[in-house]
Design a protein around this nucleic acid. Structure first.
Lengths: 109, 109
DNA sequence: TGCTTATGTGACAATATACTCATATAGTAA
DNA sequence: TTACTATATGAGTATATTGTCACATAAGCA
């Protein structure tokens, strides 16, 4: 791949990773596993202001992680690329392995 | 899971996602697929200052994505949880699907 | 029409992140 | 010891991100 194209790909990959890299946005993705939801229900589920959630949602739509459709007054959001969820399986492994390390550390004290 | 524990998990997952969510750090991970490397070689490969790369590396170590060991003067960094790499497969899918959308858009103009 | 609800957005302040430079530290070798 | 190399880090500036408030927009209904 050309050097510039590679840089561009890294930037695009980073954009997607950034779109996920926030506790509220992860909570949103977790909630959306149950299927498409409107902003008001998402805001309630994650315990944050609607306007704030709306911004987080548009970041994720811009990155291509979510898609949305209008349904009357509501806008329904859904996970566009379910393989994103595999990522959480992976980082849960990272967290577990760190937790085990800490446990060993504690026992050695 | 308790509500607080859930919040903690989301925060921890976000920390790991953040540790990946930067073009330079993605370039580093890409380079480290070839095996462990020292800071100077990583800096050269990704085309960035050593001090800057050193900071990026410590962020990824703190998040549990990389591990490192001293080898004489050098510090060798390596990917600690290879499943992280699957994530790139996933987001490449996202990028391809968006590229296809844009192509269709272009053809409709 | 006016009223209500759901969502999006401009503007701002607060905070976090990234990069650079200079300097510190640690290891190697003469 | 001194000189050299690799890495890490403090301090500063620049930039990006986040959350909140107020307001705008859009859709439904009386």
């Amino acid at each position: 791949m050309a050097k510039n194209a590679q840089q561009l790909l890294y930037a695009r990959q980073a954009q997607i990773a950034k779109a996920i890299a926030h506790p509220v946005r992860i909570a949103v993705l977790d909630f959306l596993q149950s299927g498409e939801q409107c902003v008001c229900d998402i805001a309630e589920a994650v315990g944050s202001e609607r306007s704030n959630v709306s911004r987080h949602l548009s970041v994720m739509v811009a990155a291509g992680v979510l898609s949305c459709r209008k349904d009357g007054l509501k806008v329904m959001y859904t996970i566009k690329t379910p393989c994103i969820l595999q990522f959480f399986g992976c980082i849960t492994k990272v967290i577990k392995s760190q937790a085990r390390e800490n446990e060993q550390l504690l026992q050695a004290m």
